[in-house]
Computed example of a mutant assay.
Amino acid sequence: MGSKLKKLTAEQRRQAQQVTLSSPRMRYGILTRLLFMTMDLVYGRKKTFSKFKVLELIARVPYQSWENVAYVAITHMYAQRDFARRVFDRVKEAREAQDNEMWHLLILEELTHARGIKENVLLYRILPQVIAFTYYQICWLIYVFKPSWSYLLNAHFEDHAEHEYMEFVAENPQFESEPFRSLFEEDYASSASVADIFRQIGHDERMHKEESLEAIATARFQ
């Protein structure tokens, strides 16, 4: 299938934002709605840098669970070379997605720190780990028994993230004139403004969503 991730120009990022803002959100399933309701209850409905950090911490979880299940599958089925090749390709895609979500998390940590935002240790350090651990177990179990459901669950999550980021930029026009500097620009992407980097992140989330939707068609372990 191959990764859809790519670094966009400033104009492409603005176009990507308009596409997202003009597109309806997906109809989320029960598990996804429960997760979002929990986050809104704990962190509030307002979009904040700190809340996005929690979102990114959780965003890596499905890819980690898929990689784990895939390695277990290869361990037991390595004699079936075509199967092993296909599963290992999925492992590589999951790793790339994990890395991409990690850059998002690190950039958000930079932006939060630069603003001097104070965060409650329980709410923003400990609880997110608990949520991520629980979500990992759910993703792992679903992927073992019904991979297509796990891909759809992730597509719903990424669709939510895509819209949240693009709406965040639209709701904060001051980001357009705020310069962006990061230790991770060489590894991730450079941007002239904070608005632009959020547009890039939002586009990444859309690509993750599309990859998950495409994976549903070939989601099987056989």
Rank of each mutant, 00 (worst) to 15 (best):
S3E: 01
S3M: 07
K4S: 08
L5K: 03
L5P: 01
L8T: 04
A10W: 02
R13Q: 02
R14I: 09
A16D: 02
Q17L: 03
V19Y: 12
V19S: 08
S22P: 08
S23D: 11
M26C: 08
M26D: 06
M26F: 09
I30D: 03
I30V: 13
R33W: 02
R33E: 07
L34S: 06
L34M: 07
M37F: 01
T38K: 01
Y43S: 01
Y43L: 00
Y43H: 04
G44K: 00
S50P: 07
F52M: 14
F52N: 13
V54H: 06
E56Q: 08
I58W: 08
I58H: 01
P62Q: 06
P62D: 10
Y63D: 15
A73L: 06
I74N: 10
Y78T: 13
Y78R: 15
R81E: 06
A84P: 08
R85K: 06
D89L: 12
D89V: 13
D89M: 07
K92E: 10
A94R: 01
A97P: 11
A97L: 08
Q98T: 15
E101R: 14
M102Y: 11
M102H: 12
W103S: 03
H104W: 07
I107R: 05
L108W: 03
L108D: 04
E109C: 08
E110G: 05
E110L: 09
I117R: 13
N120Y: 05
V121F: 12
V121L: 14
V121I: 13
L123G: 02
Y124P: 14
Y124V: 08
R125C: 13
I126D: 10
I126F: 08
L127R: 06
P128G: 04
Q129D: 11
Q129M: 13
A132T: 02
F133I: 01
T134M: 11
Q137S: 14
L141G: 15
I142D: 10
Y143F: 12
V144K: 14
K146E: 13
K146W: 15
Y151H: 11
L152P: 08
L153F: 14
N154I: 08
N154Q: 15
A155H: 09
A155V: 05
H156L: 02
H156M: 11
H156W: 05
F157A: 10
E158P: 01
E158V: 04
D159V: 06
H160F: 11
H160A: 03
H163N: 00
H163G: 07
H163I: 07
V169A: 03
N172M: 01
F175P: 03
S177K: 11
S177L: 05
E178R: 00
P179W: 02
R181T: 11
L183M: 14
F184N: 03
E185V: 04
D187L: 04
D187I: 05
D187M: 05
Y188F: 03
A189V: 14
A192L: 09
A192I: 04
A192S: 10
S193W: 05
A195M: 05
A195P: 03
F198R: 09
R199L: 02
Q200C: 01
I201M: 10
H203M: 09
E205Q: 00
R206W: 10
K209M: 14
L213N: 13
L213C: 07
E214L: 12
T218G: 02
T218P: 00
R220E: 15
F221K: 04
F221T: 09
